[in-house]
């Protein structure tokens, strides 16, 4: 049966995304026990978290299907986050 059109993902896509998010959680946890250096642990954890967040934003929050103005607002928020973190880290590195 065909589904009526909405901006929401279909139930099948929603459940597939959930499966991917849970698998990435298992991978994040498994990598935390892998014999990597502290820096690589952090990079892997943040990289996988960013991937999971991107899946949530693009599919669950249907950002991929929203108008460009919504993309601009979301990117602005991300920009403020990165600006603040960069400033704090630069200040700490300079000490």
């Amino acid at each position: 049966m065909s589904e009526p059109a909405t901006t929401h993902p279909s139930v099948r896509v929603t459940l597939a995304t959930l499966g991917a998010l849970l698998a990435l959680t298992v991978l994040t946890t498994a990598l935390a026990f892998a014999p990597l250096g502290a820096a690589w642990h952090l990079i892997a954890a943040l990289g996988l978290a960013a991937l999971k967040a991107s899946l949530v934003a693009a599919i669950y929050m249907h950002l991929a299907r929203e108008p460009r103005l919504v993309h601009a607002v979301a990117l602005a928020g991300l920009g403020w986050l990165l600006l603040l973190l960069t400033g704090v880290l630069a200040e700490l590195a300079a000490r």
């Binding site: 979301a74 928020g77 403020w80 986050l81």
Partner: peptide, 19 residues
Amino acid sequence: LGIWTFLAQELVFFAALFS
């Protein structure tokens, strides 16, 4: 658009906490 604007300022709030 209104909700995303609210979420963008929420992101700034959590940016302070992550800093």
